Each structure stands twice: as structure tokens, then as C-alpha cells.
Simulated scan of single mutants.
Amino acid sequence: MPDNTAQNWKSDWENAVMPTYGTPAINLVSGKGSRVTDSDGKEYIDLLAGIAVNALGHAHPAIVEAVSTQIATLGHTSNIFAHPQVIALANKLRNLISPDAHVFFSNSGAEANEAAFKTARLTGKSRILAAEHGFHGRTMGSLAMTGQSGKRAPFEPMPAGVEFYPYGDLDALRALIGQTPDDTAAVILESVQGETGVVPAPEGFLTGVRALCDEFGVLMIVDEVQAGMGRTGQWFGYQADLPAGVVPDLITLAKGLGGGLPIGACVAATRAGQLLAAGQHGSTFGGNPVSCAAGNAVIDTIVADNVLDNVNAQGEYLRTGLEALDAVDHVRGRGLMLGVVLKDAHPGIAAEALDAGLLLNQPADDVIRLVPPLTITDTDVREAVAILKELLK
């Protein structure tokens, strides 16, 4: 068994793990609901949820039962064979998005975006237009579409053909498409930019992008990896802007879809579902029975327990509670995907929050990102607001 004392686990980490994340501040060993415990026995309220992954919190009985039953029944098949869990999950996503949808399952959001990238290229066109400051993953294709030059620079040259437009600027996007409309394959964007600091698209922007894509015959790809699966109080972030029944051509999902297990999905909601042919894409672990069982449990529980109502109620309490603080300029985002914008830079707030018993994220010196479990309770939300109030005095 590993030695979990602070000095030894940090040394073991540094000796054995690549330094891509630096050395973590704490070593988490257990969790229940919206609370986790570290190797020193200290408990924290989790306002990060594994970066918007643990949709139902930690050790949710529905996921535990589904995964335990499935791993004891059939653990892996590869995509050469079908199994009931993958069919059920694909149909649940079709029911949520469009009866015409087709689903490709992967292991992560980056892989889902890779599938979208490749699908777009099968239109016979090469240009992909991506939003500035967007984030779509760290594999080469998804990184090429990530509108943050600092993340791309060490790995250049990137896959060719990606150009960037200002997020929220329809006129600039129209002008960019108009440069070579016959060679523009797709426009990709997040309904809410998460890694940038929870920046929702301006009202009407997604509707405008849909209209532009229809006008020029371009695929509309919406990355819902972070904003999807109920995070914003609706099943998908794009639903806050697109009219009912209107969908993007491709929707990418991951994070909350598996409730803690690795799974991603590229959902082709329109004609794009016919572009990838047999043998043109694949994933050994994509659509794994155990991960799909977790995904089915997540969707079923969100429906059965009216989790979206809790997302909206707790999100509103977080928003109003934090906007009342003198240190807070405003809170942006929807549901339980919130960016708390501070009046002044406070670069140490994430570390201070750890000391006070909160897990949160700080994408910028003046922004706090809150993406707690969708099932977080009144008690945990109120205690978290009280702690943040003290930290931000």
C-alpha cells in the first residue's frame, strides 16, 4: 500500500508521474456527495467536481450499482461487437437531441472533438473556423482548434486549415467565411467558454451562427464537453439560444456524461451523421460497457430525481449570494457553471480556499470558476458561500 503521509506521497508523485500538472497540493482518497477527504483526514466541499465531471457527486449509489453490475457482467468488448449499454446510451442521447442523431463514442472530450474535426473534413472542404479563447482539448487536432496561442505554440506546426474568429462577433465570422466560402467546412464554438473563465456566448450568437452555417452550407459544431449534461440548468448549453427543435450539426460531449468514468461522444444531429464511413474512425475503448452503464445511470438519475431543478435553484443561490459580496464585480454563466469575476486580482484564492476547506478553480487572477456536482445540497452551498464570504473580505 502507498504511504499517504504528505511528505511521502508528494515524493512518490514527483518520482513517478510526468510533471504536466506540477505537484498537487493535496492527495484525495475518498468522497461522498459533494464532499471529499484527503489523506490527512481533512474534508472539503467540492465546488470543482473533477472539472465538471462528477455530475452526481462522489459515490452516487446509482452509478456505483450500474458500474458494479456491468463490470461483473461484461467489462469490455471493443467496438467490433455491440452490447446493450452502448445501444441504450446512444438512444438516450438521440432522445435528448434529435431523432435523426447518430453517436460516436470516445473516451474523452478531446477525442470527441477529434471525431468532429475529421467528420468536417469529409465534406471535401478544409477550413475550420474556431473561436478565439476557446478550448477543445490537448490532442493535436483538438489543440489546433483551441483559440489560445500559448497552448498551441510549443507543439507547432499544428494541423493546417484552422483559422480563428472573435467569440461572439457575427460580422467578423461572416467576413471570415466569405473569404473562401466554398472551402469552409465547419464553425466550432463552445456554448459557454469554460477554460477561459466561464464566458457565455452573447445572446443570439448561436442562432446567428446557425443561420450563417445554413446560408453557406457549413457544419456547425458546438462543444458541450463542459456545458452539457445539465451543467447549465438545461441538458445542453446551446438550448439557451437556439430555438426549440433547432440543433447544431455536431455536438461533442464528455465530462458529466459518465459521472466520473471516462467517456466522450460526438453526436451528429443532422446530415453529418452520414459522413464517417466504416473504417474511417474508431476507438478501442470507445463505448465501453462499463462507461456506458455509468452514462445511462447519469441520464436516468437526472430525469428521475429532477436534478435540473436543483441545478437552477442552487445556481441561483450561489449567484445571488456571491454577487452580494463587496469583492465581487459580477457572476457570469448559467446553472452550476459560474464564473465569479472579482473587482480586483486575487491570485491566491484557490490555495486559500483549500486551507478553508473548499475545492475550486481559478482560470484567471480575477476569476473563480465554480462547477460543483449537479446534486449539491442546500447545506453545502450555504456553507460554501459563507466560506467564500470570509475569504473575499
Rank of each mutant, 00 (worst) to 15 (best):
P84I: 10
G57A: 06
P84F: 13
G75K: 08
D100R: 09
D100L: 12
L93F: 07
L74I: 10
G75T: 07
N79F: 15
P84V: 14
H76R: 10
H58V: 08
Q85I: 04
S78T: 15
A62M: 02
V67R: 02
L89A: 04
A88D: 08
I51H: 01
A62T: 09
A82N: 07
V67D: 03
G50Q: 00
A59I: 08
V86W: 00
G75D: 10
I71M: 15
N79M: 12
E65V: 12
A62P: 03
F81E: 14
N91L: 10
L93M: 12
R94K: 09
V64I: 15
L56W: 01
I71H: 06
S78Y: 02
G50D: 04
L93K: 04
N79C: 12
H60S: 13
A59R: 09
N95P: 08
T73K: 10
A55E: 04
P99L: 00
N91Y: 07
A59F: 07
L93H: 03
I80P: 00
V53T: 11
A88H: 03
V67Y: 00
V64H: 03
G50L: 12
D100N: 10
A72C: 09
P61V: 14
I71S: 15
V67T: 02
D100G: 15
A72E: 08
P61K: 11
H58R: 08
I87Y: 03
A82Y: 09
S68F: 02
L74V: 13
S68L: 10
T73D: 13
I97T: 05
D100P: 01
I80Y: 07
S98K: 00
A52I: 12
L89M: 13
H58F: 10
A66N: 02
A52D: 12
A55W: 01
G50C: 11
A55S: 13
N91V: 11
T69K: 11
N54R: 03
K92G: 08
P99Q: 02
N79W: 11
H60A: 10
A82R: 06
N54S: 06
N95G: 15
H60N: 10
G75R: 05
Q70Y: 03
N91D: 15
A62C: 04
I71C: 12
I97Q: 06
Q70F: 00
A59M: 12
Q85V: 07
I87K: 14
K92I: 13
Q85E: 12
P99V: 06
T69A: 13
S78P: 00
A66D: 00
L56V: 02
S78W: 06
L74C: 11
S68V: 05
V64F: 05
P84C: 09
D100C: 08
N54C: 03
F81I: 05
H76T: 09
P61A: 11
P99F: 01
I80V: 14
L96V: 02
A59W: 11
I51C: 15
S68H: 06
P84S: 14
V86Y: 01
N95L: 14
I71Y: 05
Q85Y: 04
H60K: 06
L56D: 01
T77R: 10
G75N: 00
